Amino acid sequence: MTKFASHANQKILTALERLIDIVAKLRSPLGGCPWDLAQTQESLIPYIIEEAYEAVDAIYSQNQAEIAEELGDLLLQVVLQAQIAQENEYFTLEDIAEGISEKLIRRHPHVFGDVEVASEEEVHHNWEKIKQEEKQKTHALLSEKLKTYVRSLPPLMATLKISKQAAKAGFEWENVEGVWDKFQEELKEFQEAIIKGDLQHAETELGDLLFTVVNLGRWYGIDPTVALQGTNNRFIQRLSLMEQKCDRPLQEYSLTELEVLWQSAKKQLSIDE
């Protein structure tokens, strides 16, 4: 390691130590912040999810200053969780760092060991194989593993993870036509539940329909979260163009007028692209 690199690393460690000390002070019963003191591992869950999504949004925007800020907010959540865990003698930030370091070493035998790889695909294959071997030691049943996705991930992401793992275990359609058949089946059952006015049953069928749509995306290599995020962004862009052309609130326009404005905005965005 060069003298410059060593100096840079020391500056990083100093900055991290400052953040750790600040969080510890915020959590101190003697002069700390009442809000921070009231937090628990569970109460901070929404903030972890929110900060992760905001970091992703910043990365998509490619605003580097915003990315740095959002990653800082995400880092705060890690340090805060570690502080709470340390207070309860569960684990420490050191345990977190050591744990991920050992995992990285285990899963990169081509870097830290004598394994040779010829491509990125081979690296990914080895990673998944090692990961599976690790998980088998702690998750004997597939259902137990899938439960962790439901508990820890947003529904769309969890569904994709669940369907991928189920497929690896053999719980899979023979071809994509079978998935399309399942989609038509679930759509019909959802429509029937709506017609009957049984909203509780309709909710169940809508869930089945969405699960199948995610599986369709998986078969075609399309990430449903990315797809839906794109749709959300396009909707907002079209709505923004509509509002620019309006001389009164949207709710004062008829449905026919709104459709004309919508199609105009859609066409304009298509031309701009």
Rank of each mutant, 00 (worst) to 15 (best):
residue 39 Q to L: 08
residue 52 A to I: 12
residue 25 K to L: 09
residue 35 W to T: 14
residue 27 R to P: 00
residue 58 A to I: 09
residue 37 L to Q: 08
residue 49 I to T: 15
residue 22 I to M: 12
residue 46 P to H: 02
residue 30 L to G: 08
residue 58 A to N: 03
residue 61 S to C: 06
residue 49 I to D: 10
residue 23 V to W: 01
residue 27 R to W: 01
residue 51 E to M: 02
residue 27 R to E: 03
residue 61 S to Y: 06
residue 34 P to C: 06
residue 42 E to Y: 11
residue 23 V to F: 00
residue 29 P to H: 09
residue 35 W to E: 12
residue 40 T to H: 05
residue 33 C to I: 04
residue 39 Q to K: 13
residue 46 P to E: 01
residue 31 G to E: 08
residue 29 P to K: 08
residue 24 A to M: 04
residue 22 I to E: 15
residue 61 S to P: 03
residue 29 P to Y: 05
residue 33 C to A: 10
residue 36 D to F: 05
residue 43 S to E: 01
residue 57 D to T: 15
residue 36 D to W: 03
residue 25 K to M: 10
residue 57 D to E: 15
residue 34 P to T: 06
residue 40 T to P: 02
residue 54 E to Y: 06
residue 36 D to H: 10
residue 57 D to C: 10
residue 33 C to L: 06
residue 31 G to N: 07
residue 27 R to H: 08
residue 41 Q to Y: 15
residue 51 E to P: 02
residue 57 D to V: 08
residue 29 P to L: 04
residue 53 Y to E: 14
residue 43 S to D: 00
residue 24 A to F: 04
residue 55 A to P: 06
residue 58 A to Y: 04
residue 45 I to H: 09
residue 43 S to W: 00
residue 20 I to W: 06
residue 25 K to P: 03
residue 21 D to E: 15
residue 39 Q to D: 08
residue 57 D to A: 15
residue 41 Q to N: 13
residue 21 D to R: 15
residue 23 V to A: 00
residue 25 K to R: 12
residue 35 W to M: 07
residue 52 A to Y: 11
residue 49 I to R: 13
residue 56 V to N: 11
residue 52 A to G: 12
residue 20 I to H: 10
residue 34 P to S: 08
residue 55 A to Y: 05
